[in-house]
Amino acid sequence: MELTRRDAVAALFAGGGSVIPAVRDVPELVGEPSASGGVEITDDGVGVLTAVARVVYPSEVTGIGEFVDQYVRGLPPARQREIASAARALDKRARGTHGAAMSALSPTECDSVLRSMGVDRTVSSPDGSVPQRVRYHVVNQLLYGLYTSPRGSRLLGVENPIGHPGGYESYQKPPSTTSGSASVNGVGPQSDE
């Protein structure tokens, strides 16, 4: 399943983004520059996030770099600053334990950095310890972006995730007429649009 910039814009509808939704305006908004584009988070910061996304996103998801870049840069500046701060702390840890930036590590090594910090087992908190902030601002923010986009949600057979403005039509549809080709048992990835 390949994510695109359009998917990132769709994810930004689900809270926090600077794109203002209106009825059926998703296609027209694709490609619109966000108010905060590129200002708050650096390319290095996006690189850390992309490295983490390759770990926490399912392996059948592709197009991760572009999706993460578009998604994170579309978040409000204050959010970007908090994400960048947590990403810097994570990168510092990677450099300490593996002698290289997160973006230079393999997914297995990135996974190891996260788990060695306890990010997998800690509670998620926006203003807690470093592992808690990494869980909240990095891991969970990335997962939020993925699973509130229709494409990401289709990994679970749901074409209109909670938080995405598309439920008004989809709730009425029977299983046989959902857009895309539904998988046999109603779960699992579906084909691209």
Binding site: P21, A22, V23, N160, I162, G163, H164, P165, G166, G167, Y168, E169, S170, Y171
Partner: peptide, 8 residues
């Protein structure tokens, strides 16, 4: 607007 179906 009419309901957009955010579902929240």
């Amino acid at each position: 607007t009419q309901c957009l179906g955010f579902s929240t």
